[in-house]
Amino acid sequence: MNRPMEINIWGGDWGLPSVDIYCLEVMAYAKFSGVPLQTCVTNNPFWTPNGRLPVFKHGKQVLSSLPEISAYLKQKNFSADFGLTQKQCADAAAYTQLLKEKLHLALQYVWWLDTKNYTELIRPWYAKALPFPYNYYYPGKYEQEAKKHLEALYDQDDDPLTIESSVYGEAEKCLTVLSVRLGDQEFFFGSHPTSLDATVYAFLAPLLKVPFPSPALQNYLKACTNLVKFVVRITQRYFPYAIQEYEAKKSAESGAQGKSDPESDFPNRRRYQIVAGIFATAAMTGYALSTGLVQMSTKDEVSENSADYKDLFQAAENTED
């Protein structure tokens, strides 16, 4: 089986290799275990087996969640967890559940249920990334899913603000626990990244890098300096291309902005001036012609010409005679 392993993902932005938690998780895990993986940005979950990205393909194998993929990679002798003791594996399992229990809902909330984030940033981003006509369908669908998630876990009769503060409170506790556990270490179990590091990175990186309009939870994460350093370290070491792309894009944008700054109050000024000038000239000429202010002297010329022709004919006839 020498066919390349391939993964279809959501695209990246803001210095992230992908904006989606689960895509990031699989990508980071593959990097940590040294799997040569081709990434393919599809931004379209419609043709996937269960309506979700990422999709991992290797020959006939099509898998879509990290436990399945890591089990498959283990058969192929790739794993990020070979160096762990049994106790460390148990700890990794426990912390993974902690993230899923406490942080997952909070991220869904920040992403889809915080109205300001959703309308100003998330929905436009997904609408732009998804191809037509899916861009009208998926953002709303994901919002509904997040709403369902919240309704199933919290009493709907409660005040929305109390629910929000309780969701964020749980997430903040979880971040503190992670920060304590990481301490000054490079990764959670020493100097080598493991599956737990992949999961933590996947949950924290989008929360840290996406420029949310309402950044309550993001600010809390920024205060946990060792977690911020952890995310930056992994991005720089394993996904340098994402940062480079983002910086190139940013500098291109700021360059374009710098040029158009004097005209920023009225973009494309010269073009509008020319178009307006042409329109005005055309309108005035049309009016002048239609009211007869200016008369084209085509008739006279024709009669003159025809007179000339007559002369010529007459001259010709005369010579013939």
Binding site: D91, A93, A94, Y95, Q97, L98, K100, E101, K102, K173, C174, V177, L178, V180, R181, G183
Partner: peptide
């Protein structure tokens, strides 16, 4: 200590979810 408390929370999550 704090690290043990962190571990305790993580294992409680494990029991609570699984």
């Amino acid at each position: 200590d704090n690290a043990q408390k962190a571990d305790m929370r993580a294992y409680m999550s494990l029991v609570n979810t699984v």
